[in-house]
Write a protein that binds this DNA or RNA. Structure first.
Lengths: 221, 221
DNA sequence: AAATAATTTTAGACAAATCTAAAATTATTT
DNA sequence: AAATAATTTTAGATTTGTCTAAAATTATTT
């Protein structure tokens, strides 16, 4: 039942997991960009992962992780986030300097190690960046809903609710092409009037007012 | 100044380090045995390490680490032993189940990580097996001298002093071919009369009495 | 000091993960 | 719906670490 995976394979699985969280179906080019490698290399790996039943993949058709693949990805995410928590809470790293180290630590294979680390840290639910940490069974706490004004720049999030129910607001949202479930990122914050530059995938970026941003709640993705 | 080393290269360096601690000059076959690989593979790696100036090596002549090589080896040993200490003291692993995990953790490259871990652990001097942990500069505490009767089975050690100065004792030591500096291992302990079976490299094992063992002090190697 | 044995090195091959360049397929324009 | 563009895949090469089998060297016997 335990498949042995190389660090490279794990990195592909993790990248595909994150891309499909944001995007649904994943493409060869996206993965190549994410991993700073060439599409041809990605295709080779896709075949390998398909053969190991980690990936549902038909050529030219895009792909997604299988159930097994998702289980493995969650295991890697769990390790990454627990180590980040450890680095910040116990070793006094800054939250902005832990990522690369966690990228290495997440590939340490011992399950016992990670479960004991989890216990030592007293089963934290969120990592230092606010992302939820999967538990032993791969379950994670729901991402808390935050106000759009509090969303970090370049953090993908999905609109989860609107603060007020007014026809005027709905009219504006319709015009801006924003609905519940719309995935967006904040690209810039303007201090002068607290307006935000917003990017929805496949559209050009546009600006929204402070008032509109305050009416929108999102969950990080 | 910072050379990038693969996990494989690091494992070779560590193996050579440990072998030369015990042996002086190291041979291709010894390394192959230690790393469970073939002599031909070792020769390939030796050339590579020589080229990187980590090894003083002339073919057919045996080899030793260069100063740089020793510095690198001490860094790996430092990481291994600090992680072992962490696993036992913080994560409640048994001292006998930490080795394989530490074998993986020792290859995490961040120097900052290991120095912060050292601080978190409050600069321990010895790991759970009693081996000294090198500090940031590669210095380690002298291995404490222990009585031969307390030496664990199969732990290589060097005779460091004798407890009493008698002609009779010296006569016996001469006959048994034991001197200050002689490297030996205890292969068996016999409960009946507390005699020990001793093995000196290149000789057949032989037995010594409890009285003789109590007169000998050793340092682990 | 020859012969034999053991060790070590070379030569050539293989698998994993990558690359470039070209071919195949799908998507988008006009 | 052709033509063009973008994406994806294939084919063939490269690098790293490994292997086996054979050759070279050193060590040990007789």
């Amino acid at each position: 039942m335990e498949i042995n995976l190389s660090v490279t394979e794990e990195n592909y699985i993790k990248a595909i997991y994150h891309l499909q969280q944001a995007d649904g179906n994943v493409s060869t080019n996206e993965v190549a960009k994410e991993l700073a490698t060439k599409p041809a290399s990605v295709t080779d790996m896709l075949k390998k992962l398909k053969q190991k039943k980690i990936l549902n993949y038909e050529k030219y058709q895009g792909f997604r992780l299988s159930n097994d693949g998702r289980r493995i990805a969650l295991g890697i995410v769990r390790k990454h986030r627990l180590w980040e928590y450890f680095l910040v809470e116990k070793l006094q790293f800054g939250w902005d300097e832990v990522h690369e180290v966690a990228e290495e630590l997440e590939h340490i294979s011992s399950k016992k190690l990670i479960d004991k680390l989890d216990a030592f840290l007293e089963y934290p639910k969120f990592d230092p960046h606010g992302d939820p940490i999967p538990d032993v069974n791969g379950k994670m706490a729901a991402q808390p809903q935050i106000n759009l004004t509090d969303l970090p720049v370049n953090q993908l999030a999905a609109v989860s609710s609107v603060g007020i129910q007014s026809t005027e607001l709905l009219e504006l949202l319709k015009h801006k092409n924003i609905a519940i479930g719309t995935k967006l990122e904040v690209k810039k914050k303007f201090a002068f009037d607290n307006s935000l530059e917003i990017k929805i995938k496949g559209q050009n970026a546009f600006t929204i007012s402070q008032q509109l941003a305050q009416a929108l709640f999102v969950k990080m993705v």
